[in-house]
Nucleic acid binder design. Structure first.
Lengths: 184, 184
DNA sequence: ACCACCATGTAACAGGTTACATGATTAA
DNA sequence: TTAATCATGTAACCTGTTACATGGTGGT
């Protein structure tokens, strides 16, 4: 009867993936990378650190699978307590926070920087946003058929990329215009 | 002649603010909160932890101002080495990373959640995005006149909020439609 | 012959939050 | 008299990254 044990987002992500079956740390890392990788990607070492803690707290059970020629595998399975903790996390209203990107900080202190360097930063961001958008738009069928919710997160990525492209485009123009003005 | 001492984004933000003059930890916190607060906001305790480190590393000097009736003030001033470290940080190409919002994780595991709860999460995010957009749009004159670079970061916030509004709107519609389908 | 995949982890460090602790001044 | 402002910090904790360490299997 553990009433209210809070879990972190990373823990929730792992427990969430465990609803799909018994998985090892290795499996979990790959699952996180491939499926939701673009919006949540815990590192290997974090995963291996967190899993035993989840087991200790009763949110998952682990069993060791003996193997030959490679380290034994630890398979984790979600418990009822784990499922409840996950549920509680999912129901918590998520915190809303605007972005904190280093690029914004550099731009904010733009007067300390040579305009060309700043423009280069913005151009780079724009190029990466375009690449991201194309990558996300290039995988429609799989996500749509298999999992409608995953598709919604992909759309978020696309909208985000679109916003970045718009903003970087107009920002670049403004900076270039300013540069020309100063030269004149 | 410290050639290449790397600094973190928070350190860069503080050094950047120090280019405007001699400031105390208290001043810096308020400056961070008010001016760039929506895209970078270190906590008080972090600031007070970082400042002495900056002084130790030679990036700032500090002098104590004796006061009566309240703790003595420590005023920090940027050094040449600090200015150089800041410059190096500003010139580093910033890392590009798509957002990692807890909302996306909750949505990704949407099938584990009652649709109404999920819809409520999305609605809430939408409301907050609308509020943010209005807040940012409501301060045109000050930013534009005083600091064109600050204005560009504000525009980023507006574009971001706009993207969030679009995405939450369509997502909400989709979830509601799905809910209706299941009921039928 | 070489590389990717499977499979685990540890150690050191970096970055950041929350709560605690103190206390005078000044304006409403 | 109540709250905000000024002004500092410590302690405990949580989260996360990077680098190190090992080594067989299976495909090209």
């Amino acid at each position: 009867m553990s009433t209210g044990a809070r879990i972190s987002a990373t823990e929730a992500a792992l427990l969430g993936l465990l609803t799909r079956g018994e998985l090892s740390g290795y499996d979990l890392q790959r699952a996180a990378e491939s499926s939701g990788g673009f919006f949540w990607a815990p590192t290997k070492s974090r995963i291996y650190a967190v899993l035993p803690q989840l087991a200790e707290r009763g949110f998952a059970t682990s069993r060791e699978v003996v193997q030959s020629g490679r380290p034994n595998k630890h398979l984790y399975r979600l418990t009822k307590a784990g499922r409840a903790a996950l549920q509680a996390w999912l129901e918590e209203p998520p915190v809303f926070e605007p972005e904190r990107a280093p690029l914004l900080l550099k731009l904010y202190f733009g007067e300390l920087l040579e305009p060309e360097v700043l423009i280069e930063h913005v151009r780079r961001a724009r190029a990466e946003a375009i690449a991201l958008k194309q990558r996300l738009e290039a995988q429609p069928a799989r996500a749509q058929a298999a999992d409608a919710f995953a598709e919604l997160t992909v759309r978020h990525g696309i909208e985000w990329a679109r916003a970045m492209i718009r903003w970087t485009t107009s920002t670049e123009q403004e900076l270039v215009a300013r540069l020309a003005d100063n030269a004149a």
